[in-house]
Amino acid sequence: MSTVRLLVLGSILRRGVSHGYAVLRDMTTWRVDTWTNVKPGSIYHALDKLESQGMIEAAASGAGAKLGPSRKEYSVTKQGKAEFFRLLEAALVSPDILQFSAGVAFMEWLPRNEVIALLEQRRSVLDASLRLLKSLPVDERPSEPSRHPELVGIWIGYVESEAASTERILANVQAGRYDFKSERLEAE
């Protein structure tokens, strides 16, 4: 649920005000189904939950020149913005690839130096995981799954890949790639 919450809050924050269909359209356009486990039905459930928790506010959109039924338009509350940043920071240190992917999608909302610190923290967690995995005993003829060399090998390969990706992203952020929102505001 935290990945869905992060994506929904991020979509609304990017737009300022948004209705559920626009959030769904963002998710479809961003192809989140290819890099997260977010499903279309979970987006509307998240909107309802976020509204009931005071993270977003809803108001019926004005009739204006649009034909058809009015829709609820949402904006992120102060509490919702704090939740977005809490989820974003947690995602950028998460060893879970789905949460981390959502964090990378919105990392420009944080100051560059904070993203660097969070990525360094994630790298440390992954390095500790690698040390642990490489220390696990394995048996040629394992009596239990945790001692299977192929299983341990799969996890070592996965964590090595995650560590390499984190290192690459960290190097790019440190090299000045990407436009961070705080730097755009300072330039104005």
Score class of each variant (00 low, 15 high):
2 S>C: 04
2 S>M: 07
4 V>K: 08
10 G>L: 02
10 G>W: 09
12 I>S: 06
14 R>C: 11
15 R>P: 03
17 V>F: 12
17 V>Q: 13
18 S>W: 07
19 H>E: 07
20 G>T: 07
20 G>Y: 01
24 L>Y: 04
26 D>I: 07
27 M>E: 05
30 W>M: 12
31 R>K: 09
35 W>S: 14
36 T>M: 02
37 N>Y: 06
37 N>A: 14
38 V>M: 12
38 V>N: 03
38 V>I: 15
39 K>F: 09
41 G>L: 11
41 G>W: 10
41 G>I: 07
45 H>N: 09
45 H>S: 14
45 H>L: 13
46 A>D: 05
49 K>E: 15
51 E>Q: 15
51 E>C: 13
55 M>E: 11
56 I>S: 02
56 I>H: 02
56 I>P: 05
59 A>P: 00
60 A>C: 02
64 G>Q: 11
65 A>V: 13
67 L>I: 13
67 L>Q: 11
68 G>F: 01
68 G>D: 01
68 G>T: 06
70 S>Q: 13
71 R>D: 11
72 K>Q: 13
73 E>N: 11
74 Y>F: 15
74 Y>E: 10
80 G>N: 06
81 K>E: 15
81 K>C: 11
83 E>W: 00
83 E>T: 10
84 F>V: 11
85 F>G: 04
87 L>G: 03
88 L>R: 00
89 E>C: 13
91 A>Y: 03
93 V>M: 04
94 S>F: 02
95 P>L: 04
97 I>M: 05
99 Q>K: 09
100 F>H: 12
100 F>M: 05
101 S>N: 14
101 S>G: 09
102 A>S: 04
104 V>E: 01
106 F>Y: 04
106 F>K: 08
109 W>I: 02
110 L>W: 00
111 P>G: 08
112 R>N: 08
116 I>H: 06
117 A>H: 09
119 L>P: 04
120 E>I: 04
120 E>V: 10
124 S>N: 12
125 V>W: 01
128 A>W: 00
131 R>S: 12
131 R>H: 12
134 K>G: 08
137 P>Y: 06
138 V>M: 03
138 V>S: 00
138 V>Q: 05
138 V>W: 01
139 D>I: 00
141 R>E: 02
142 P>E: 03
142 P>G: 03
143 S>T: 15
144 E>I: 12
146 S>K: 04
147 R>F: 05
147 R>W: 00
149 P>Q: 04
149 P>G: 10
150 E>M: 14
152 V>C: 02
153 G>W: 05
153 G>T: 12
155 W>R: 03
155 W>A: 08
155 W>E: 14
156 I>Y: 04
157 G>A: 12
157 G>P: 07
159 V>P: 00
160 E>K: 10
166 T>M: 04
166 T>R: 05
167 E>Y: 04
169 I>K: 06
169 I>S: 03
169 I>Y: 09
170 L>G: 01
172 N>F: 02
174 Q>A: 15
176 G>T: 06
176 G>R: 08
177 R>H: 15
180 F>K: 03
181 K>C: 05
183 E>L: 04
184 R>D: 07
184 R>S: 11
185 L>N: 08
186 E>C: 00
188 E>R: 13
